[in-house]
Amino acid sequence: MSAQNPKSTVLDVRSLRTTFHTDRGPLTAVDGVSFQVHRGEILGLVGESGCGKSVTSMSIMRLYDEKYTASISGEVLLEGRNILHIPYRQMQRERGKSMAMIFQDALSSLNPVLRISEQIMEPLRIHRHMGREEARQEAIRMLGLVGIPSPQERIDCYPHELSGGQRQRVMIAIALSCQPKLLIADEPTTALDVTIQAQILDLILELNEKMDMGVILITHDLAVVAQVCHRVAVMYLGQIVEEADVEDLFDHPSHPYTRGLLQSIPHLDGGHRGELHQIEGTVPLLHQIPEGCRFAPRCPLATDRCRQGTVPLQDLGGGHMVRCLCPQEGGL
């Protein structure tokens, strides 16, 4: 997809590093993450809870309080412009307009005391300078676009009056109302039923093609990745450990962690009968990050060499990057 058909780069993240100021001292949750998202491409950002996927997205949107909570360094190029160091007010004008975000839990992400009309019209009025009536018509059109039935009536509902799937659609409508170049979807289907999950993923796929925008899909669900993503970046403890086109990653996972993740998926069709595979040990805490390869303490293949010095990302060819000294070949 993106590899065969190179398109213009929407987002270019270079050596992103996010450090939180905590009572126990600084904690680096994202450490040197780099990736690109192209037009029309869906990049999956995968990993266990606490691996830094959400922190990465929040840092790109600059949604942390940069004075008290976190400091962010590196470069985030949105269509070539570094947005990491522009003034806060200018950043506000980018959010919602050129980049937008949808969150996991639509019920808590929509303001409970405001009608959804108010919440969809807000970005339209701020970024596209529409009047009330014009914004309302556009909001109704957007609700129709994301598949809300009879949008003229639904637009004056409060969030609690809609179903979970509809709320998620409303959130997508809000995010896409100003036709952003980049959409970040942070676990958009985790809180939903499986059937609704599929509908929402289809909707994101459809809108991604229709609007030709870049999408970062954050998830811990590899099945979701296989279904919709073009490229995948696997994160572990604040670093990208493997990045590849989706077929390549599923066919030839090279990093022991990626292989472990893939083996943990239960199969119905024979193969892995009996007990489910699990990766040994647990994810270390952020202030106990091991030296050398961060995965080494849990890795079945780790050698002494792995525990010394940092392990760089290496290119296996065809855009397949892996952070491992002894990358594996072949399928599972």
Partner: peptide, 29 residues
């Protein structure tokens, strides 16, 4: 610290409107 404030910020809502429109009424409850 709620999600809907995060969401409002991600829409590009100015800080003033976040405080007066999104946060104030919920605080008032």
């Amino acid at each position: 610290s709620s999600d809907y404030i995060k969401m409002a910020r991600s829409k590009g809502t100015p800080e003033r409107a976040i405080l007066m429109k999104h946060a104030f009424r919920n605080t008032l409850l």
